[in-house]
Design a protein around this nucleic acid. Structure first.
Lengths: 281, 281
DNA sequence: AATAAAAATGTAATTTTATTACTTTCAGTA
DNA sequence: TACTGAAAGTAATAAAATTACATTTTTATT
């Protein structure tokens, strides 16, 4: 991110042609990458050596180096839209594509994540007398993962991954408890019903699900993960990665909030595992 | 990730000089970026037009375009080293850092992933009479996720996440079965013992674990995920993300390998869920 | 095994692109 | 207004990439 930042910086804007160049590059960086020094010079209305001097002034070797650097930065900023997986892709292509898909999905979700909502969720989890994670189907592993991550804390925590247990536990909820409902679509009837049952108890109901979904409307707090279209037959299953990362964010934030006195506890938990080498499995 | 993947792909390796070029680029991609076509040609021992033709053969405009593309990919591949999370970080800082940490870990693992090993693993899973996923502790959710993903296929699949069930099931294994042992450290005694028990049955034992670990030595096939240091108290738990993505890669590859006749089955599975809106949960 | 056809590679010329050396212009200051 | 130094331009040069054409190697066929 350094080049673009440097360009916006006032030091680089001293001379008239430098300003013209910067404005052009900032306006259409992508176009500049495929231009020759002559084309760029003409487009901006300066001479070629001016462009060259400008590049060197930025601490680069010359114009080609400038293009290389600029392009690298653009690549970093814009994760490519993952292309569909084709039946005759090689293994390394599949690896690359699944990776890209997961990465893109993660970026998309986190860019839209409301950090205030996260803060509120952490507060709720912090205050909770006990925490219950619920998920069905594909979200079941996420609930179990969450349970595992939250075992680090003093607060009683449990994951339920099937309807009956989920419905049963709503009976023992109090307004001091926090029920976390995890669903990708937010349209799984069974889980929505669990949330509805829980609503009567006054417990905090935190939804990790799609906004504007039936489940989302029942929840008292929402961490929105927008579900995207599942167009292709061979789409990688990216949803869980985003959910898990969100859980990770919650657990990490909570650990920080618990703060000083808590560090000792955390070390104790780790130590109990290290001795038997079971720690991370 | 597309260029590097294309290079490893066999289609590109047809001619002798293409192979020489590919090997050189894969060995020192970073160096190639700052070379002229003449330097590269000399280093590899081919003529300049050969280099040019090679670039065009990859669907690029020419050598400069090749360098641009390669550089962009390298920039993408090397995410900034995630900084440690500090006790006084804001929520949005935590979000960014956890995200970066997960992304970095994912990149690191997949860069080192041996695509041939993946291919062999997919073959084994394809041929298997039944598939059993085993994981303990933090890897338990991963095993359950795998079970869920593999339910798409005809092959019987199950996940076991506690010692007793895991030991019991080894008794019924045959050489046609595939046992997948998931462990981040590869040092969990209980799981290594399960793999040892399974070894006697002649079943394929596929390890998704750290190379050179006790568990890895017992396995007949290995998908290496190198465990990294857990230096910081507040380290996000990045290991699962990599494991899950690997599972995703296996499931996607297998779906492709099952091929044509299988597509209908997949649609049927999806349909049964869509009707009740339970599909992705 | 010989030979034709096709593909791959190399040589040398050409074109494109970038850089350097030098000159002119412009802005600020006495 | 004339001087100084920075900034910009012109033209020449050098570097880099590409094309056209010749040669070699590979592959398929008889």
């Amino acid at each position: 991110m350094s080049l673009m930042a440097d360009l916006q910086n006032h030091e680089a804007r001293r001379s008239k042609s430098a300003r013209k160049l910067i404005d052009f590059v900032l306006a259409e960086p992508q176009a500049v990458v495929s231009m020759s020094i002559a084309t760029l010079a003409a487009s901006v209305g300066v001479s070629e050596p001016t462009v060259n001097r400008f590049c060197k002034g930025l601490g680069l070797k010359g114009f080609p180096d400038f293009k290389l650097t600029l392009n690298a930065e653009l690549a970093r900023a814009e994760p490519r839209i993952a292309r569909d997986i084709e039946p005759d892709d090689s293994t390394s292509q599949i690896i690359a594509k699944v990776f890209e898909a997961n990465h893109a999905s993660l970026t998309r979700v986190l860019n839209r994540l409301d950090s205030q909502a996260v803060e509120q969720a952490v507060s709720a989890l912090d205050k909770a007398r006990s925490i219950i994670f619920c998920g069905l189907g594909a979200s079941a592993p996420v609930a179990i993962d969450a349970q595992h991550k939250f075992l680090r804390f003093f607060t009683p925590v449990v994951a339920h991954t099937e309807m009956i247990s989920q419905r049963m536990i709503t009976a023992s909820l109090t307004p001091e408890d926090c029920l976390v409902c995890i669903s990708y679509t937010g349209r799984t009837r069974a889980l929505t019903e669990v949330a509805e049952l829980a609503a009567d108890t006054g417990a905090t109901i935190l939804g990790i699900t799609a906004p504007n979904s039936p489940l989302a409307t029942v929840c008292t707090q929402l961490l929105a993960i927008e579900a995207d279209e599942d167009t292709d037959l061979y789409t990688p299953m990216t949803s869980r990665i985003a959910q898990l990362t969100l859980i990770d964010i919650l657990a990490t934030s909570l650990a920080l909030r618990k703060g000083d006195g808590f560090d000792a506890h955390l070390l104790a938990v780790k130590q109990r595992l290290t001795n038997t080498r079971q720690q991370l499995d």
